[in-house]
Design a protein around this nucleic acid. Sequence first.
RNA 1: GCCGAUGUGGCGAAAUGGCAGACGCAAGGGACUUAAAAUCCCUUUCCGCGAAAGUGGAGUGUGGGUUCGAGUCCCACCAUCGGCACCA
Length: 852
Amino acid sequence: MSSTEHNSKRYPFCDFEPRWQEYWLRSGAFRAKNPGESGFDPSAKKRYILDMFPYPSGNGLHVGHLVGYTATDILSRYYRLRGENVLHPMGWDAFGLPAEQYAIKTGQHPRVTTEKNITRFREQLQLLGFSYDWEREVNTTDPHYFRWTQWIFLQLYHAWYNPVTCKIEPISSYQGKEPDHVRLAYVANTPVNWCPALGTVLANEEVLNGKSEVGGFSVERRPMRQWMFRITALADRLLHDLEGLDWPESIKQLQRNWIGRSQGAEVIFSLQNQPEKTITVYTTRADTLYGATYLVLAPEHPLLEELDLSPDVRKALNDYRNGCNAKSDLERTDLAKTKTGISLGLDCINPINKELIPIWVADYVLMNYGTGAIMAVPAHDERDYEFARTFSLPISPVIKTTPSLSLPFNATDGEAINSPLINGLNAIDAKIKIISWLEANGMGRTCIQYKLRDWLFSRQRYWGEPFPIIWEKGAHRALSESELPVEPPEMEDFKPTGTAEPPLAKAHEWVRYSHQATRELNTMPQWAGSCWYYLRFCDPKNQEAFVGKEVQEYWREVDLYVGGTEHAVLHLLYARFWHKALFDLGHVCTAEPFQRLVNQGMILGPDGQKMSKSRGNVISPDEVIRQYGADALRLFEMFMGPLEHSKPWSITGVEGIYRFLGRVWRLILSETPENIFQVNANIMEQPLTGAQRRVVHSTIKKITCDIEALSFNTAISQMMIFVNEFATATPTPLEAVQTLLQLLSPFAPHLAEELWVYLAEKFPSVRALGSLASESSWPTWNEEYLLFEEITYVVQVNGKIRTRLTLPSTTSQEKVEQAALHNPSVAPHLEHKKIQKVIVVPGRLVNIVLKS
RNA sequence: GCCGAUGUGGCGAAAUGGCAGACGCAAGGGACUUAAAAUCCCUUUCCGCGAAAGUGGAGUGUGGGUUCGAGUCCCACCAUCGGCACCA
């Protein structure tokens, strides 16, 4: 190749990068072999390395998406060089709202735009030389894929949670009369998050501060008939099994908070004069029962319909409830500062002391947590305190105060007072005593509550998986497996209907399943496809099962899962739930899907702000690759800093990495006057000097350890040190450069592959290691070669460095100490002082401590 | 308010309790060149003293503590970011 052709380039990446990408693709270099396939090696360790698959948006990828993908690619290539069987697939989470909304705007069918976007995403990923096994590519919108999404839905529909075995079991093991009441997938008519702007309902997890997570539209609560998943049945296992996972503590904590387990008690209060009517409250502070001075019901509490109220109160109540209904969730929380409520003019009886306390209705009590009713202890609860002050209700302390505490305090270690049964006890013992009293008297029991709600699983959309469900005479019925997949109808107009009715209602022919039965009109949420895609990757072409049994037992769980924090409680919780259900039903062999999770940090724009189209600071990989090549982009993404950190993009940083790769190129090749590249005449098959051998072996060690610790930035630093070291070495030992290429090949695979071929052509010894860098093996180091003959000790007096001392590494500690004490730069600092002690850290330093 | 993460040069960062700032960027100076690009070399935490080689001191968000020795461990606080938020 002529250098004029690439005269602005430091090395001809635009020639060899596409060439290697094409070669890898064509030769199937990164195919992972399944058990039973020819070439499958049962002795090789399996390793499943997974990226969170992307939603193929119309904008293409930006450089921030590539951080995680590059990291997993380096690991995959590294483990392959170590002889492991690496599963590293990629696919598309392609159902979803943006495609549908774009379709509505432009009239293009979402299938068309999705197909186009996927093509673009795939091209972009291939431009980076990622070593995905593309034969395993999956697409959630492909009928061959969502057939199995629907199939899994049917397994969950035909299952229930058996509270005796604490397991999910086929519905056939249910002995009761109402299987529809216990199914894991069930229909409920409950208040849901309805988003008028999106024309659909949303899961709790998709609503932030009363706004939709997608688009930020306001969300209101209204009762609708919807499909739900009984995820709360597994709340305890979802919580408990976090312990065994190698996930960032912060993500585990996020899930724990979301599940929100709390242990407390239900206490039964009966109404004065209507003893047959009772109110059950939930409290975590049973020890403060004596301090309850009133009781509060949520405005939606069903008991309110049954109570005998004076006409005035009934009217006031209705007004108040209407007022609450009109408020969105956002308003209800915004107005948190001032408490509102009305008194019912009724009293109930505190079971512990038979005192009469008034019943109030207030919207600071939520119907969807606990029992929708609380006992208010204003002395020791901020909210109750505020409410009591607003309405001049009595406040009676039942925990001993100290000078540092003022009302309301909720001390958990305080001593109970004014509470005859438990006076003097601490909170823990007091709780136990109160609860056992309540249980003994039939007035309450211990109880566990979760913040986690059941998962709202249906959406009023077109571009999603239809449910494999039909309705007949008001009852739902599952389709049989042989009727899968249920494909969405071809429709011209899939705009929201403007009512709660899903767009599929407009496909009149499709809707009619039979003379008597109609199809379910809702579709599944985007999470459905991503709940199990990691299983399909193991066996993507299987026509008989969602994943083959033997294959699943081989690949098991994902060993390393890399993605962003934004999925901390959505995808990661939902997928764990499906996985556990499949586990209980015997379809998978592990209780958890993702053993190790790593969150890559965000790449910010060059301005330090989050990359976004509106800020105009989005960096596209295409332009970077055009100027500097894929290897430079890959290497820079990893060199920027720790994988988990967010950091701003810097084009001069890419420049620096590009220079480094140019140095590697010139270390190995030189250009003839005829503009031909050939192996540098300096490179010779000759032994390393002791010092060189130390550099080579310490580099192997550092890079190996750093890759395993995911510290790619320091691994790259070490390569730079290595290159700086050998740049001036004449002659250059072949072993050094060949090792460098092996170490570099997971990071900058194109360049390493290209240079390896040059070396292999010239030197048979290189050829013998592998005709390609990617076909050689990962180098190993020898600890013996890392030792120095001489060691430089730092000599400190009272912790301050006074001199350095170079001694043979065999020098004994006593000799080192003596040498330090008698050193001419040290001696003046010791004059007229008494030495208290001398600390010698072997191989490192001497600290002389003087008496003060 | 609660929970979690992070705080080190001009910037990205590095440092099993043992030489703070490796590696890279940027900046400045030099070499090569008619010139530029590219490449190579040197300097660059701050404050003193020195013509210079040097040399003295301070320094990892703030204040305490443990230790011969702390960026690293402990306590308190501050700031930034992320999550949750009337969850009884």
